[in-house]
Design a protein around this nucleic acid. Structure first.
Lengths: 340, 340
DNA sequence: GTGAAAGCGCTAACAG
DNA sequence: CTGTTAGCGCTTTCAC
């Protein structure tokens, strides 16, 4: 044991002794209980500050079996801003509330997910934001039932509100492409096993239907998110005899991979192929021409998640939040090539 | 109080009673103390598992005044992968150790930083990784002296090991540019008030000197990181009569801004201007031509930070880790324009 | 309004 | 090897 022995920490007992009052009074004063003579309360608080008193959160959490001292944030992946940046943003917002955020990564592994969520429960977190893994276990659902939970990006069918992106902009993209004259449109997106994968595919199909194109005519390739197998899908799609004249991508990591593969294919945008990707327009604007992008406001997503969680911990039972995605038209969308 | 009353949690006392042993024995068995009859230990563990026992981390932390149950991770910004992705990655690695990571964001505000670090101390974290704010307060340094700390990206001169990127590749970039014939080279990087800003500037100057170019002849613009004021700096540099024939950027967020501004300027790369940016080559490869990039291996950085922290908590006093950055030559670097 | 005392759930001496 | 007994530092009845 590397022994951080007893440091010279001051505790409530010290404060109480030094002020000639009881620990109960100190505690009350420090927690703003109205039932302490204001004058005394102020003296206690001042003294606490002077002595550099910092309450031990474990003792506090242990004693008052409820506190919003900690919350959990559970995400599957680390290497996409859709998760890690939103998590960080959320930590920022929660800290304003004096709440510490414990971040855990499941790597989309149901087993780890269960372990981590169990550990969070063991920490008596006041609640948690969770982006469920694809094959969430029954035991995990069970655990989640026991405390305030907010789902995020993905839903796993438990009775908890969530913050999701409404990906209709993907549908708008398809509609727009059809309007431009495209008939053979490819879609590469995350697996439908993930709730948002399913939602995005649905949006794309709806967009086609809305423009009068048979959704079943779409060339669809669904992949695990956060893999760069997008390249393979692109090559496959573009080497068909009736290759699509337009491609829509429904995921951030996939989009990067697809953009690179398309670039490698030598096709001209938008002359030979139209392309709409998913993610941060600022980055995709590096491309020449700037890519048309479906984007979602991550900071806002984080804000809503944080607020929803705090509401829920506070007992308010709010409903889902659906954040509208936006279609930014760049230079990569145009009419299909004449011969097509 | 939103009252998560007493849920039907099982505790050591329950296990002890049900098994007809003492809580001490249960505790020992559960913590793998060798001084329990193996047969009994196994029975206890099995029973604990069957009952779905999960130890209350607060009680544990409170009792054994040392534990690696929690660590802190303190970063200034949320919107750059240099921080948020590394933090997430670190959380992933630490969880394998059963350690929960509390993430906090200072927004580079010394006051918040102090508050947050004080709160982490109040949580009795076993240690923390911290990327200090620019104007860190004396009180904060004081606090950091009291527990195992690993510095990250930035150093604040306390006596704690750190994980840094060795940005000599920035110097290599400059050397290379000089070798290509460039004499007027601009550098846009993070303020020297930040330790890594200073280090990068030094690397750039060293690179110039190594190639026989007077470091003082560099056109240097230092900015706050994570702002997009890069655009202004670019316009200013490129509108001078003796505008640089090459530009090197020493920060991720700055790089994006600079790349966009250069693009807007209409200058051809590398014909009119050579450009070397800082960040993820995969993203900057979207640019046409693909930008030459100085990059650093963030996952590895996270790995080293996690390991260093655990070592340090374990009592090992290891030294700094310097991770070598790499220069990826893309298509944005070439000889200066003939007339220059 | 304030104090005394009983825990929160666990670990760690100290005995046996 | 195992049980008894104190706490860890705080909150919270319950009296006064």
């Amino acid at each position: 044991m590397p022994a951080r022995t007893r440091r010279g920490e001051v505790g409530v007992v010290d404060l109480a002794r030094e002020l000639g009052v009881s620990t109960a009074t100190v505690s009350r004063a420090l927690n703003g209980s109205a039932q302490v003579r204001p004058e005394l309360a102020r003296r206690i608080r001042d003294h606490a500050r002077d002595r550099g008193y910092v309450a031990n959160r474990h003792a506090r959490a242990l004693s008052s079996n409820s506190s919003r001292a900690f919350v959990g944030f559970v995400i599957p992946y680390v290497d996409t801003p859709a998760y890690s940046a939103v998590a960080a943003q959320c930590a920022r917002l929660l800290s304003a509330d004096g709440t510490q955020m414990i971040l855990t990564i499941t790597e989309n592994d149901p087993r780890r997910e269960l372990d981590q969520i169990r550990d969070l429960v063991a920490t008596r977190v006041a609640g948690m934001v969770v982006s469920p893994s694809t094959g969430i276990l029954a035991g995990t659902r069970e655990l989640l039932r026991e405390l305030p939970v907010v789902q995020f990006h993905r839903s796993c069918g438990i009775d908890a509100p969530g913050v999701y992106s409404d990906d209709t902009a993907l549908g708008d993209a398809v509609t727009r492409l059809v309007d431009l004259g495209h008939r053979r449109i490819g879609y590469i997106g995350p697996s439908r096993a993930i709730s948002n994968g399913a939602a995005r595919l649905a949006a794309v199909r709806d967009g086609a239907a809305a423009a009068g194109l048979d959704p079943d005519s779409l060339a669809v390739r669904l992949l695990e998110p956060a893999t760069d197998q997008g390249a393979g899908a692109v090559r496959e799609l573009l080497h068909r005899a009736d290759r699509p004249t337009a491609l829509v991508v429904g995921g951030g990591t996939l989009s990067l991979a697809v953009a690179r593969a398309v670039r490698a294919s030598g096709l001209r945008l938008p002359g030979d192929l139209s392309l709409v990707v998913y993610g941060d327009p600022a980055w995709f604007a590096l491309h020449d021409p700037p890519l048309s992008v479906v984007s979602i406001d991550y900071p806002e997503l984080a804000r809503r998640a944080a607020r929803l969680l705090l509401d829920r911990i506070g007992g308010d039972s709010s409903g889902d939040v659906l954040l509208t995605s936006e279609l930014h038209i760049g230079g990569s969308t145009g009419p299909p090539p004449p011969g097509a």
